[in-house]
Design a protein around this nucleic acid. Sequence first.
DNA 1: CCGAAAACTACACAACCGTGTAGTGGCCCG
DNA 2: CGGGCCACTACACGGTTGTGTAGTTTTCGG
Lengths: 206, 206
Amino acid sequence: MDKTKVLVVDDHAIVRMGMVALLNAQPNLEVVGEAKNGELGVKAANKLRPDVVVMDILMPVMDGVEATRQIVASQPGAKVLVLTTSTTASELAAALAAGATGVIPKTTGNAALLAAVRSVAAGKRVVTSEIEEIIASDEPAPNLTQHQLDMLASIVRGLTNADIALQFGISENTVRKATSTIFAKLGVANRTEATAMALRKGLVKL
Amino acid sequence: MDKTKVLVVDDHAIVRMGMVALLNAQPNLEVVGEAKNGELGVKAANKLRPDVVVMDILMPVMDGVEATRQIVASQPGAKVLVLTTSTTASELAAALAAGATGVIPKTTGNAALLAAVRSVAAGKRVVTSEIEEIIASDEPAPNLTQHQLDMLASIVRGLTNADIALQFGISENTVRKATSTIFAKLGVANRTEATAMALRKGLVKL
DNA sequence: CCGAAAACTACACAACCGTGTAGTGGCCCG
DNA sequence: CGGGCCACTACACGGTTGTGTAGTTTTCGG
């Protein structure tokens, strides 16, 4: 059997270096390409057709979740192993929803990491118990309207209800009601808690 | 001349793997030890007396800033190169204040990384322009009282002024005045902005 | 195509919040 | 050791916020 071809997508050069060193030392694994952001990763995946893509989440230009989505969309059989530092449940869940075959933390030791790459190559779903717990501990998706998300972003930026009313061209009273609804969905009591929650869950990027 | 001895402290196994592969491929560099958190890093540094310690910031048990402080304290001539993902100015500044000889981002390419390790080994201060800019863009330290920091933490957790008054055993009016002072120091207008700012600057851990 | 659920609009009221003003006590520096 | 600075305490006032109630529109499943 041929070597399993691996594409490494990570913006940290030293991580790519580590993957190359680790995988190329194995007789049946081979790194055939590297990319330092999601966009280049998608291009490389389409060109190289690797058996497994090892993908970081937090990257400039295009994040790993979106890159995973695009790779899986254009190559239905593609296997993506997400290797990340991120511990926000929404990102991990998003990665799986985007079609990742496995998700493991960067703290994973070399042996377990190799095992994960091999398992994913074989089409086996790999999710560590650690990751599972994080996802499970996440309350059901807040499921906010786009409108509500925009409003939440304004709240986080410190705008008053009056400011928001002006910004969206609606009455201040309406803004009050809308924020109220948002707080109920988030399970918080006021805009301060909502801000902490939004930032913690990554619902709004600062 | 003997090989330059390097200790790698990072909680990500794959990064340690990368450093080992990168440095050991050089004729005059050698990784003599690895540690996966700050505490083990300090112990290893004291035992191995490496010429350079490559240190991550974000780690469990003891972070890289504290570890750097301790290593520099017990070995005044020690050279620490902080290699990090973190982009919060306060952490980068703290790393330098703790005695790090160099600070570079993890996105640094292999060649530049090797150069940095060599420069630091030679006692030369290494701070990329990217890092410098981040630090320079940081406003002067907010300089809050411990009391004020505690209060800020309560605000971030969503407590009302009445709650905080109860918690600290002071009048609600006093709490109002105190929060007012905190907001002025942070340059914000209300508790919501204060929450965003506190979380962004890492003044309060969630 | 229709009915239910949910979002959006609006307003009044009650609770909450932040500022101006003011007094006390601690600490540092000249 | 006296003056200045700042943290801490306190209160009243005016502005901001969130909820209850209620009507309209949109959306989605049957």
